[in-house]
Nucleic acid binder design. Structure first.
Lengths: 244, 244
DNA sequence: CGCATAATTGAATTCTGTCAATCGTGGTGG
DNA sequence: CCACCACGATTGACAGAATTCAATTATGCG
């Protein structure tokens, strides 16, 4: 099971690092928000299940967490991959509409819902910040819907790789290099369930890109992007003739 | 072009009828929110385009409005169908991530963004209400992702029909009848672009349901649901053998 | 080093898409 | 009031993309 590292009274700034980084500036980030706890999660350990009452929202501190929905016969649609700095469990107020699961060994910060509600009443800018956050996630989700509904396998994978690359850049913008080697912290089956494909199709698309010199497979979970422009063309369905 | 019916100072209650219906109770709905205008839209008339600066959010008063994203070669993914009472244009703060278009002759109420921002500062509960709204839309969108990514054509259409039926019930719950005849206010091509299918496949799925006595096609835009339980089974992938 | 798990590749099938033709419907004007 | 026309919906035949099933290869952890 999961070990609780520490339980402390926390300030807004500690619980929501992204708030300090300038999205919203009229929040008193020194405000205390009550008890938060950090949890260490093993791979495949669940944080919450679809349908459960929502008691906390969760800030990913380390690792990668996935949220997903299932059909009764086991088909799975992964909704999001959450990286450090991302918040999960905000889907709706009431009960979780997704299950949340660690894809790797992860650390998450658990923030009680009632703290959030109190904060929204006391810090006017805070609700606005959460709205921003949720709205951005909605925008992201809509982008993903375009992939799921209208893109071919290769286009989906290209879109996904660019997404990860952008994300990766955001994490280590310290190294300002452009010919990126990105790490793919999820397995093929998880990519497949995110893109609405099978692992075989994902694998074949990887191979196509490799053969076409668009990427180089350094390892199973490490991809070097050789031609990011081409990748972008493919992602948007603008690749002249190939790779479909 | 569109005719502006009237421009008036409006209260919260007028602009957001759903606020009065009990979601959030600590908002002074008598508060005035500044100038709103009602617009009458013809079929196919646009409200906003993807990428445009977001100046208003819009409350649908009459008709049905669709929001969508395009790929450069014309492939379209419809994100939402908005009915009277729904709000569109909340996707994100900044610029629209979808285009919005009337599917039928519609009336929308245009609410300036700056009113919204002011309201969020002055009425603590209001931001919370918008967060609720956005979170619910996010939950809805995630449900749709499951359809797009993991369901067969028949399952998608069944899911869609149930969705419309639920919506329909909400509208005229005055007539408490159960053997529902629902009106489908969108064309096959719009259903197709919502479900990530072609019009031909949508049409074939309709025919399958008709032959299987699950629905009756009263007219092109009017469906009688004969066996809602069966439809629900199909929608969730639990239909024993058939219709796939 | 070895084994379990993950990824790749191949062959055959299935579902959906594409192209094309026909049918139906609703609205308009004679 | 009816006929016509344009648009939308349906149906059929075929093609193609992705899945399924199966076998092989690679990887990474103990």
């Amino acid at each position: 099971m999961s070990a609780t590292l520490r339980t402390t009274d926390t300030t807004i700034a500690t619980a929501f690092p992204w708030l300090s980084s300038g999205i919203i500036d009229h929040v008193n980030v020194g405000h205390t928000i009550g008890c938060t706890a950090d949890r260490v999660l093993d791979r495949h350990e669940h944080i919450f299940l679809e349908g459960e009452k929502q008691t906390h929202i969760y800030l990913v501190i380390e690792g990668v967490v996935g949220t997903y929905k299932l059909l009764s016969d086991g088909r799975r649609q992964i909704s999001t991959f959450a990286y450090p700095g991302d918040i999960i469990g905000l889907d709706t107020v009431g009960e979780h509409v997704n299950s949340g699961e660690a894809l790797n060994r992860s650390v998450i910060r658990c923030i009680p819902i009632n703290s959030i509600e109190k904060l929204m009443r006391n810090e006017p800018g805070f609700g606005q910040a959460l709205l921003h956050l949720t709205a951005n996630e909605l925008a992201d989700t809509r982008e993903q819907m375009l992939s799921l509904g209208r893109k071919s396998a290769a286009e989906k994978l290209a879109t996904f790789l660019l997404r990860v690359a952008r994300r990766h850049q955001a994490v280590d913008r310290s190294t300002g290099q452009s010919n990126q080697t990105i790490s793919i912290p999820m397995k093929r089956s998880e990519i497949a369930d995110f893109l609405g494909l099978t692992i075989e199709t994902v694998s074949r698309s990887f191979t196509k890109f490799r053969v076409a010199q668009v990427i180089k497979l350094v390892a199973n979970s490490e991809v070097e992007i050789l031609d990011i422009n081409r990748l972008a063309l493919i992602a948007n369905g603008d690749a002249p003739n190939c790779l479909h």
